[in-house]
Simulated assay, not measured.
Amino acid sequence: MIKMQVIGNLGKDCVVNTVNGKNVINFTVAHTEKYKDSQGNNQEKTTWVDCAYWTDRTAVAPYLTKGTQVFAEGTPEVRSFQRNDGTAGASLSMRVREVQLLGRKGEGGGSSMDSSMPQRQGAPASASIDDVADDLPF
């Protein structure tokens, strides 16, 4: 078995579809790696991973919005295609087995998801992550 793990930010809001009676949540994760090239110049490389999460637990979908940082784990798939100009291309996709919300882009430390989650009614604005997690539908 080949396992793939990625931590990154969603490039756009997820889309929930039904295929042959089964639910699938599609989203794209961008992982950016910073490094120095052989001349010592700072470089940046972004890898985009198309994700398909086949699950009946679609209650996570409202939280999979553009900019949200996630951890996703699953099985990689490489798809080959031909571009309009005739050149060959490939895309990296993953059949997700597990997804975890890590926070929003720009949050310090990534330990709190409070600002990315809707507040439950009657909850204080300073609710801890444990308080919010008790109300999550997944």
Rank of each mutant, 00 (worst) to 15 (best):
W54F: 11
D135F: 11
I25H: 01
Q119E: 13
R95S: 15
S93F: 06
E77L: 09
G109W: 00
R57C: 08
G103F: 02
T32S: 15
G106Q: 05
G67Y: 01
A125M: 11
M117F: 12
A123Y: 10
L102E: 02
T68D: 02
V19Y: 08
T18P: 04
D56I: 06
Y53F: 15
G103A: 00
L101K: 08
G11A: 06
N9C: 05
V6H: 00
S116K: 11
K12P: 05
Y53T: 07
T87L: 05
L10N: 02
V78F: 12
E44P: 08
F138C: 04
S112P: 01
E98H: 12
T47R: 09
T68R: 15
I25T: 00
E98N: 15
I2M: 10
K22L: 10
N26G: 09
P137Q: 07
K22W: 03
S112E: 07
A52E: 11
Y63A: 09
A59S: 11
F27W: 03
G103E: 01
L101P: 11
E33Q: 12
T55K: 00
T47N: 10
V15R: 12
S111W: 10
Y63F: 12
L10A: 03
S111F: 10
G21W: 02
K34C: 07
Q43S: 02
G106S: 01
V60K: 05
G86L: 04
K45N: 12
T75C: 07
G8L: 00
G103Y: 00
K34P: 03
V60P: 02
K12N: 14
I129L: 09
Q119Y: 05
G110D: 00
N17E: 15
K66Y: 01
Q69I: 09
R104E: 08
A127W: 13
R79A: 10
G11V: 05
T55R: 03
A52C: 08
V60W: 03
R104L: 13
I25M: 02
